[in-house]
């Protein structure tokens, strides 16, 4: 084993994101409570639970959209919660990405598809129009949007296309950590499948670490390596995705799994 390879292996053995005792309260009500986990490079972790289980609160705390009351979040050895906002926002437009459930929340609807994809590049200093446009065209291709739609606004796109555009806009800077909030929610089943396939390929090819929040167990089975089940703001069970789904230990997880309609 060469020295470089050894270094790479050592890096892969370090968690990319490390969360300890994360707690967020809304007054007396618990948003999420005492959540801990490590996410390693290239890992996809699913978070499932019903509405109000705290999964979205947790995601917001991790992505820096909410400030937790207690706990620690370490990204690549850096304390995220102690980080200056400048640094955190720089992270969130370079090494991090956030895919919203509603593409309207993650896109600029008044800006062309190319401008939407190019924004993150321009935000990190790209100043060559031709190169920005080239990168945008390349990414539209990767998310299967026809090149001749580059100057159209997202409002002219279907829901599935908007979601793919949002993904391109997020991944253009080659992030390492992607937060996804119900990325396939609100899409037709056939469109969902296409998006899942796309995401799987991107995760594999780019070595992305992903935290994906969803209530769709089929989505996590296909995408996530690991699964965390939340209820009432607490993690009731976590483990290997197929193990949690096929041999659930907690009463709530058993109920959740057995409640899914089989087709």
């Amino acid at each position: 084993m060469g020295v470089v390879e050894a270094d790479m292996r050592a890096a892969l053995d370090q968690p990319l994101l490390s969360v300890t005792g994360l707690t967020k309260r809304y007054g007396a009500r618990i948003g999420c409570s005492d959540v801990s986990f490590d996410l390693f490079p290239g890992e996809v972790m699913g978070i499932v639970g019903e509405s109000g289980s705290g999964k979205s609160t947790l995601l917001s705390c991790l992505a820096g959209h909410l400030v937790p009351d207690e706990g620690q979040v370490t990204y690549s050895g850096r304390d995220v919660l102690a980080m200056a906002e400048t640094e955190r926002r720089r992270l969130s437009r370079t090494e991090w990405a956030y895919v919203h459930q509603n593409p309207r929340d993650g896109l600029r609807m008044g800006v062309s598809a190319g401008g939407n994809v190019g924004e993150r590049l321009m935000a990190v200093g790209a100043r060559h129009y031709g190169e920005i446009r080239g990168a945008a065209a390349d990414w539209l291709g990767r998310v299967e949007i026809a090149a001749d739609r580059i100057d159209d606004r997202p409002s002219a796109f279907s829901g599935g296309m908007q979601q793919r555009l949002q993904i391109a806009r997020n991944l253009v800077t080659g992030p390492r950590l992607v937060f996804m909030d119900e990325p396939t929610g609100g899409l037709d089943v056939s469109v969902q499948a296409r998006l899942l396939d796309l995401l799987r390929g991107l995760v594999r090819d780019m070595g992305l670490s992903v935290i994906i929040v969803t209530h769709d167990l089929a989505v996590v089975r296909l995408l996530a390596d690991r699964l965390m089940v939340m209820k009432g703001g607490r993690v009731v069970e976590q483990g290997l995705t197929d193990q949690v789904l096929d041999d659930p230990q907690d009463a709530y997880t058993q109920l959740l799994v057995s409640s899914v309609l089989q087709v």
Binding site: G239, L240, Q243, D246, D247, Q249
Partner: peptide, 9 residues
């Protein structure tokens, strides 16, 4: 078999 594969605890 499932236990060997890690699918069952």
């Amino acid at each position: 078999m499932r236990m060997v594969y890690g699918n069952y605890l």
